[in-house]
Design a protein around this nucleic acid. Structure first.
Lengths: 223, 223
DNA sequence: AATGATATTTAGGAGTCCTGATTAATTCAG
DNA sequence: CTGAATTAATCAGGACTCCTAAATATCATT
């Protein structure tokens, strides 16, 4: 009773989760340093190699690289130039548009990428300790966070299911595999949600808005 | 039909989760830049202010600050010196040990911290979209990841429940509140798990090893 | 009192990362 | 089809990060 106390609000789950993510971000940053310098690379250079390796074959534009890693084109340009000097990537002008640069991994680059990719292993090890249910919920949660980052313009495109033309959230009644991928034409469960799908096709508005809403609201009978 | 394709091994949940965490880490890094520079601070300076603000009153040592933010003492020393010049923190030698530096937030520092703390809000917004169950699972998952980082020496101390003397994982049968906090002497559920508890007391070996194992293995009848 | 360990600072160098200006190519208007 | 905007990449520069290694001061032990 009495007036509402100015009692400091106990930190909520949300704050604790945010703090945890921040913590992991800091750890990853320092790991990236150690892991890359061991290979004679800088952290950014290492990240670029890994990004290219993930995209296999498919060359990337400089701008895309920058956007994906949340840095300016100038910073990315520097790092790519350094990588070219080391013959780890090849730069070439695109045939259709001579302004754009297509960046391809060389054979040596591919090897360097796989050698230096170990820096995320500590995180991987932690993730492996989650139960399958935790992993599913975690992946769904990550998708929501990243989707929000995207809505707010913090990151550009995330090639994840929830933003893909082919994705049908909660289409099926089966609780184990509630979602559907129109490309594979198969039901899929939470653990199959992808963060960086090679087949990703950006969803078009207004369908996209509805897809995202449906994914957010979760298993619901109405709507 | 025909022969088994040399189809590349599909990436597992673990990889997708790791990729997602990496993505968020990159986004946070760039957000920290924007948020801090707006206040006339550098990212590290902003982080230090926020860290001190979280610890309310309690002053911190330079080394602790550095460890918490995964940077060397040298880097932290620089940033703290800059903050002192701006009168946002006060430095003082500890009375008990004249080697250690105690760092305290000034009133202006407290204000600056709360103004610049908005940079994690995008993440917070995403987390708020998770269902309570997702939040619980997410927090438990984060704890496992951070605990592993700690085991591997990537980060020093995390002031989280799973490493605390007072914590009794899975003590109760109640699925909603399976854990127990010996300090509050109350059962607690997943959403109450803390990432940065003010009351944290580091668990001692060998109890700590057992506590951690019990937390990892989850609700189990035996042992 | 000498030795070793701990906490912080200093010095120096490579890298990050930004803003703003520049060059080149493409697209669009008239 | 030419001139003006737009877009992709680069260059120039400066402030900050972040490291290692060495120096300084203070405990803690012998």
């Amino acid at each position: 009773m009495g007036k509402p106390l100015p009692m400091r609000q106990d930190k909520s789950v949300v704050d604790h989760i945010t703090a945890g993510l921040t913590r992991i971000a800091a750890a990853l940053r320092s790991q990236a340093w150690e892991g890359s310098t061991a290979e004679g690379l800088t952290p950014t250079q290492g990240q670029i190699l890994m990004l290219l390796a993930e995209r296999e074959g498919r060359p990337m534009r400089l701008n895309d690289v920058a956007a994906e890693l949340c840095m300016t084109a100038a910073t990315a340009s520097d790092a790519v130039a350094a990588l070219e000097n080391k013959s780890l990537v090849r730069k070439a002008r695109s045939a259709e548009d001579h302004r754009v640069l297509t960046i391809t991994l060389s054979a040596a680059g591919r090897r360097a990428a796989s050698r230096s990719s170990g820096w995320a292993d500590v995180v991987r090890a932690g993730v492996m300790r989650m139960t399958p249910e935790e992993q599913g919920a975690f992946l769904r949660g990550l998708t929501k966070v990243i989707g929000t980052l995207q809505e707010r313009g913090v990151i550009s495109v995330a090639r994840m299911c929830a933003g893909c033309e082919y994705f049908r959230p909660y289409l099926h009644a089966d609780a184990a595999k509630p979602h559907h991928c129109g490309l594979m034409n198969k039901p899929m469960g939470e653990p199959q949600l992808r963060m960086d799908c090679p087949e990703f096709v950006p969803g078009q508005e207004p369908d996209q808005a509805e897809r995202w809403q449906r994914f957010l609201s979760g298993r619901q009978t109405n709507q």
